[in-house]
Computed example of a mutant assay.
Amino acid sequence: MLLANAVLFTVNDARAIRITEIMADFRSLQHYLNQLRTNPTAEEYYLEGYSLLRQCSDEAQTILQTPFAGSSGAPGGDLEAEKAQLQMIIVDAAVRRFQCQRAYLRAHAGLRWMNSRNSILRGQKPHAGHFEALQAADNTLRSELLAISDLHVENTLRNQDAAQGKWLAEDPSLAHIQQNLMRR
C-alpha cells in the first residue's frame, strides 16, 4: 500500500505541474487577446475583420468570467480525492486554453486581414480601384477562418506540448473538450 501511495503522489505531482503548464499557456493567450486594440473608422467598424477582432476579445473576457466547473472541496489528504480533483482541474484548464487558442488563431487571421487592408489602402479611403484587392483580402480571411477547425486547434496545442516534452497522458481528448464546451 505504501508503494501505491508513493506512485500516486508522483503522478499527482505530475498532474499539478501539468495544470501549471496549461494555465501558463492560458495566461499568455489571454494577455495577447486582451492587448487587441483596433481603431476602425465609423465606416469600417462593422467590416468582417474588425467585427472578428472584437468578437475574439469578447470571447477572451467570457472565458475568464466562466466559473470553474469542478468541485471546490479540499481533498484533505485523500490521494484518490486529490487525483480526481486534479483531473477535473486539468480538464477545465485544457478547455479554457483550447477556447483561447481558437480565439487567438482567429484573432491572428483578423490582424493579418487588417494589415492587408491597410497595405492596400495606404491611408486612402476605399474606392473602386481597391475593390478587387479588398475582396481578395476578405476572401483570404474567410478561408483562414474555415481552416481553424477544432481539430486544427487541438493539433496546434498538442504539437506544441509534445515538442516541449510535456506530460500529456491525462489531457482530455478533443471529443471530451467539445462535450465540455457544449455543457457550458
Rank of each mutant, 00 (worst) to 15 (best):
L181N: 15
I148N: 04
Q179C: 08
R96I: 02
Q124S: 10
S72R: 13
M1L: 15
L33T: 04
E21Y: 07
T10N: 09
R112S: 05
E144S: 09
L47R: 09
Q124W: 06
F98T: 00
C100R: 01
D13R: 14
Y32D: 06
A128I: 08
S149K: 13
A128V: 10
A60T: 00
Q124A: 07
L53V: 04
Y45A: 15
A24P: 05
I17T: 12
C100H: 09
A81W: 02
M88H: 09
P67M: 02
T66D: 08
R97K: 10
T66H: 07
E80I: 12
L134R: 04
D78N: 10
K83N: 14
T10W: 14
R106D: 04
Q87W: 13
T41H: 09
A109N: 01
L145E: 09
L168K: 10
I120P: 01
Y50P: 01
A94N: 02
A107V: 01
E132S: 13
G70D: 02
H108K: 10
F9I: 06
L134F: 03
M23N: 08
S149T: 14
L2V: 09
Y32Q: 06
T140I: 05
A163K: 13
R96P: 08
N180L: 14
R106F: 04
A16L: 13
Y32R: 08
D171M: 07
G123H: 02
T156P: 00
N5V: 05
V91M: 10
E132H: 11
S173C: 10
T140C: 05
A69W: 00
S143A: 15
E132K: 12
R15I: 02
L181P: 08
L3C: 07
I89K: 12
R37G: 02
S119L: 11
P40A: 07
E154I: 04
H108S: 12
N5S: 12
P40L: 05
S57L: 02
G110I: 00
A163G: 15
L174F: 11
R184K: 15
I19Q: 14
L111A: 03
D138P: 02
Q135K: 07
E144R: 03
R27G: 06
Q87R: 15
R158C: 11
E82Y: 03
G49C: 02
S173H: 09
I148F: 03
Y32V: 06
I17H: 14
I63K: 00
S143H: 13
F131R: 15
D150C: 03
R112P: 02
M23F: 11
R15F: 12
R106W: 03
K166C: 02
A16W: 11
E59A: 05
V11R: 13
H31Y: 10
N34F: 10
H31F: 12
L174Y: 11
Q61C: 06
A128Y: 04
Q99Y: 06
A93R: 01
E132N: 11
G76E: 14
Y46T: 09
